[in-house]
């Protein structure tokens, strides 16, 4: 039996639901024991785990310290979801007027300890594997858990939503209908759900950043503009889930 911990930081628990769904499989349950999963198990602390899924991005100093401590106690860390990989939707705050103290909500921490720009996990600790998605896909979790137990890992595929869209034989919404679609610059994994319903991809699996640079993203943005998206909309669209990568490629100015 491998010891499994499910850890959540700033995120919506959508990925956790997908993990739950994977844990309903008999063969997976037989091989893993849950040592930490606040949604399911009554344990506030755990000492060690072989494997941990960490959902969410790092938004406070406290989280950052907790993660560094976690790293010492866990053998293998899976960054789970686009938040953990690229910041997630909560990163949109970095582009606006960020004032945590003005919302009228009681703060648990000093506002100076709350990060304006949420950090992806790998900015804080060493990450062993990444599962993109908002949320991730339960099938990817199942595959991962089965292969990990057998002593292997799924091979990492770095391709775009277009790849899945084309393999499904879907008619491209961008080329046939002029609908702005982020598929060409978005990581695969969802199975091209949005185009299969005739709408454009929103980029929830995060920016497929390999081989891209600022100029290429801008030339794609130019294409979206041709299709009728105003300046601000295309920037918000491209950076919505992947702010951290977007900033790496284009800078944070807005």
């Amino acid at each position: 039996m491998l010891k499994l911990a499910i850890v959540k930081i700033t995120s919506c628990s959508g990925c956790i639901n997908e993990i739950l769904s994977a844990l309903l499989e008999d063969d997976i349950r037989a091989n893993y024991t849950l040592v930490y999963f606040t949604e399911l198990v009554d344990s506030i602390e755990f000492r060690e785990a072989d494997l941990a899924f960490v959902e969410g991005s790092v938004t406070t100093r406290h989280q950052e310290e907790a993660l560094k401590d976690l790293r010492k106690r866990v053998g293998f860390i899976v960054a789970t979801g686009t938040c953990a990989l690229m910041g997630g939707v909560q990163s949109l705050r970095a582009m606006g007027d960020f004032k945590p103290e003005s919302r009228g909500l009681p703060l648990k921490q000093e506002s100076s300890e709350i990060y304006r720009e949420p950090k992806p996990l790998d900015q804080v600790v060493k990450v062993d594997y990444a599962l993109p998605g908002c949320p991730i896909n339960a099938d990817a979790v199942k595959t991962f858990l089965r292969k990990y137990y057998l002593g292997g890992l799924p091979i990492a595929i770095y391709e775009t939503v277009c790849s899945e869209c084309k393999r499904r034989g879907l008619p491209c919404v961008l080329v046939t209908k002029g609908i702005p679609c982020l598929g060409p610059i978005t990581l695969s994994g969802c199975g091209a759900i949005c185009p299969s319903f005739g709408r454009g991809c929103y980029g929830c699996y995060g920016l497929q950043f390999h081989g891209l640079n600022g100029g290429k993203v801008l030339s794609f943005a130019e294409r979206l503009r041709e299709l009728g998206l105003p300046d601000l909309d295309y920037r918000a669209l491209i950076s919505a889930y992947s702010y951290a990568k977007y900033r790496d490629l284009l800078g944070g100015s807005h």
Binding site: D27, I155, I157, T160, K166, G183, P184, I185, L212, G215
Partner: peptide, 28 residues
């Protein structure tokens, strides 16, 4: 290739592109 974003559409629609990757799917 300045504007190419590496989406791969050209490969998939090309009637002569034949490259494949082996992916192992482990089920129950």
């Amino acid at each position: 290739s300045k504007k190419c974003i590496g989406c791969g559409n050209c490969n998939y629609v090309c009637p002569t592109c034949f490259c494949t990757e082996f992916i192992d799917r482990v089920g129950e």
